[in-house]
Amino acid sequence: MSVPHRAPAELLNSRRSPLLVFAGQSNRPLAQAICDHLGVPLGRSKTEKFTNDNIIVHYEESLREGDVFIVQTFSNPVSDSIMELMLMIDAAKSASAGRVTAVIPYYSYARSDKKDSPRISIAGRLIADLLQEAGADRILTMTLHAPQVHGFFKVPVDHLSADLVLSEHFRQCVPDAHNGVVLAPDAGSIKRASQIARRLDSGLAMIDKERLSDTEVRPRALIGDVDGKTVFIVDDEISTAGSLVETVNIARSMGAKDVYVAVTHGVYSGPAIQRIAGLDVTQVASTNTVLVPESKVEASNGKLAVLDVAPLFANAITNIHTGASVSTLFT
């Protein structure tokens, strides 16, 4: 019996590239949680640092024609995390991976999105160029500091939002959250605060700030009513918590009853934990885009909470792998 001829394209299209997920060293617990939701094992790879501080990455399984996703968040030490990711991307392309997607839950250099003082680099664009030069075919990230950073990439970018996770967390903490007020700490975060307020069916307020210099910003007024109400402060990230302290103090001075804080990225650098421990808030929550050590949770007087976004990333990876729409995850 003769075998029907099949065109090469048909033969290739009948074989879906295997889904392979690997992780750098910055946030392996999140990568493992993503794999648990996907029902696939976390890929085997090894990263070593030589005595001269150079990094080498080695994959311990075949990547040939695979649909490879590399999870690496840009957290401390940021430069090592970026270098490791670029080496992993380059090694995957050299190993004949079919497609390489860089999964960057926290893109820290997104804060450097414009030239706001003389003789500086727009580092957010530079890092985007380096990742593409390394061979990244696609980027998957969450809550960029500014939407224009999306445009720094010439490859497709899927930009996830943690708004649904934060909104549900507020609802669980405060059953009558609809009677509260979502407070934007500045004009730049008002759009996001408005979206969460709509999800909660709650009120909305904003703190108006004036810039005194390139590095100094001073709160000027609170627009909206928080007197006697539960206040939900939302932002993209907490670094040293200096702005958070100012925002909470203004809300309290205006009569806020209880204050809850939720952000996507809990960086908690420098004096952040000490400031949060002494802050007049009920809770400060962040997602696990950045690994928050248990020691920081304990040092915060029990005020820190960590929310899981692994299911969101797992669903996005599934949709990218199968060619489905990622935007449907937010409707």
Rank of each mutant, 00 (worst) to 15 (best):
S213N: 12
A193G: 15
E237I: 06
V68D: 06
G39Q: 07
A162L: 05
M86S: 03
L244Y: 04
P105Q: 08
D214Q: 13
D90R: 13
G224K: 10
V292L: 11
L87H: 06
S286H: 03
R220Y: 10
H150K: 13
S213I: 06
I56R: 14
A7P: 00
V281N: 04
V297P: 05
I320A: 05
G66M: 01
H145T: 07
R138T: 02
P185F: 13
H159S: 04
T287D: 06
T331F: 02
D258Y: 01
D53T: 15
S62K: 04
R198D: 15
S94N: 14
S117H: 11
D90L: 01
A184Y: 01
A134K: 05
L166S: 05
D201H: 13
A146G: 03
A193V: 08
K115M: 11
A134N: 08
A95R: 09
Y260D: 09
T282C: 08
D158H: 11
A324S: 15
N54W: 00
L183M: 10
H150R: 14
L183I: 09
S269D: 07
K93Q: 13
E246C: 02
S45D: 11
V40P: 15
T331S: 12
N249Q: 15
A177W: 05
I223Y: 12
S253N: 14
D67L: 07
M88D: 04
P18T: 04
N54M: 11
S167V: 12
E65V: 03
K209Y: 06
F232L: 12
P41I: 06
E84N: 09
A221M: 09
L307Q: 09
F152A: 03
M142K: 07
L329V: 06
R275I: 07
L42H: 08
V259C: 02
I273F: 01
V181M: 03
L166D: 03
R125Q: 15
V297T: 13
D208Q: 12
Q32Y: 00
H265N: 10
Y260T: 10
P219I: 07
Q25R: 14
R28W: 01
L307T: 11
R119M: 02
C173K: 15
A285R: 07
T282D: 05
I233A: 07
R64M: 03
K229H: 01
G66N: 03
I122M: 10
N288H: 05
T264Y: 10
A205V: 06
K257W: 00
T215E: 14
K229M: 00
S167R: 07
R199Q: 15
I233T: 06
I207K: 03
